[in-house]
Nucleic acid binder design. Structure first.
Lengths: 179, 179
DNA sequence: ATGTCCATGTAATCCGTTACATGATTAT
DNA sequence: ATAATCATGTAACGGATTACATGGACAT
C-alpha cells in the first residue's frame, strides 16, 4: 500500500505527468518499488480525490496533452506522517527458489538453465545501477537530497552482487550432485 | 501465480492439512514464497476442482476434524511441466528503501530507528535459518531430496547476511551526513 | 479469567496484471 | 511499411490482505 506514497515522493522532486511517473517507476525509484502505468494512472486518480495532488492539463500540438500533477500541502504532510510509521519486511516471492527447494520433482537441465538466465539478469541490473551511479552521483558533491538516492542505489548494487555470487554458487553445488 | 505450484511442492513431501500447509508457508518454504492461511485454503479448493489434489477428512475427538490433501498423478505432471517454464524476476517492493530514497522529506530520527529495527529483523531471520540448517541438514549425509532445500536455505542465509551488512552500512552513511 | 493452540473457512476490499483502445510523430 | 515514442486511459480478472467467525482443549 505504499504506491501512493512512492508517487508522492516522486512528485516532491518535481511536478510530473502520469507518463513521466510510469517511466520513473520503470527506473530510479522502480528499483525499490515497481508499478505499471495502469497502476500509476489509477492511483493518481485516487490521490486527486483525496486532495493529495493537484492536476492541470497542458496543451501540446502534435502530441496528446499532458496532465501535470503537483503534490499539495496535504500531500507533503501525508508523507511526513507516513515516514514515521514503522514499515514491514518486504515479502519474499521467488519462484526460482521454490524450484530449487523442489529439486527432487524438477527437470534438472531446465533448472540449471534458468539459474544461468537469472545470473545474467542480475548482472544486467547491476550494470544498469552502476552506470547510473557513475553518471549521476559524484561522491564528492552530494547534497542531502541526492544522498538518500545514493545510499539506496549503493544497496541495490551490493544486493545484485550478492545475488550473482550466490546463484553462481548454487549452480556449482548442483553440479556436485550429479556431475 | 505460483502459489498453486508451491502448495503442490509441499505435498510431494507428504500429504498435509490446510493448517499444516499454512504453517509451512510461515516457515521452510515460506522463506521463498509467503502465503497466509486464507490464501492456502482458497487455493486448495481450486486445486481440488482441477484434480491436482485429493482430499479426505479425518475424524478427531476434542479437536476439529482435519482434511488431508494428497497430490495426484496429474498434480505431479503439473509441477514437472511448470519446472520447465522460465520464471520471472521477483518483484522488488521495499518501503524502507523508498523512505531512504526520499531522505529529504522524511523524519530522520524515525528513519534511523526503522533501519535499526530492520537490521534486527534480518538478524532474527538469519538465526532462524542457521538453526534449521544445523538441526536438519548435516552436510555429509545429503540425499538429493534434501540437497535442493539445503542450497535454497544456504542462499537465504547469505542473503540475510548481505542485508544486515548493507543496512548497517546505510546507517553509517546516514550518520556521516548530519552527525 | 485469559490466552494460545488446534482447525476450518467466508466476505470485503485492495493491489497487480493483462488486454484493449486511440492517434499523431519520428526513426529505420 | 513497420515499429517505437509520446500520452492518455478503461475493463476484466486474479492475487493478497484484513477482518470476521466458530468452538473445544489446555496451560498460566
Amino acid at each position: 500500500m505504499a504506491l501512493a506514497e512512492a508517487i508522492l515522493v516522486c512528485l516532491t522532486d518535481r511536478p510530473m505527468s502520469g507518463y513521466d511517473l510510469a517511466k520513473t517507476f520503470d527506473a530510479s525509484i522502480g528499483f525499490f518499488w515497481r508499478a505499471s502505468h495502469q497502476q500509476v494512472y489509477r492511483e493518481l486518480a485516487r490521490l486527486r480525490e483525496r486532495g493529495l495532488v493537484e492536476s492541470r492539463e497542458i496543451e501540446q500540438k502534435g502530441k496528446p496533452n499532458r496532465i501535470i500533477h503537483t503534490i499539495t500541502k496535504t500531500g507533503k504532510e501525508f508523507i511526513q506522517a507516513w515516514s514515521v510509521k514503522p514499515c514491514r519486511m518486504p515479502s519474499v516471492k521467488d519462484e526460482l527458489l521454490v524450484k530449487l527447494y523442489a529439486l527432487d520433482d524438477v527437470d534438472m537441465p531446465a533448472l540449471r538453465e534458468q539459474l544461468e538466465v537469472r545470473v545474467d539478469q542480475h548482472k544486467a541490473k547491476m550494470d544498469a545501477y552502476l552506470r547510473i551511479k557513475e553518471r549521476f552521483y559524484d561522491k564528492k558533491t552530494l547534497s542531502r537530497h541526492q544522498k538518500g538516492k545514493y545510499i539506496a542505489l549503493t544497496m541495490g548494487i551490493s544486493n545484485q552482487v550478492e545475488m550473482i555470487t550466490s546463484f553462481e554458487k548454487a549452480i556449482t553445488m548442483l553440479g556436485e550432485i550429479d556431475g
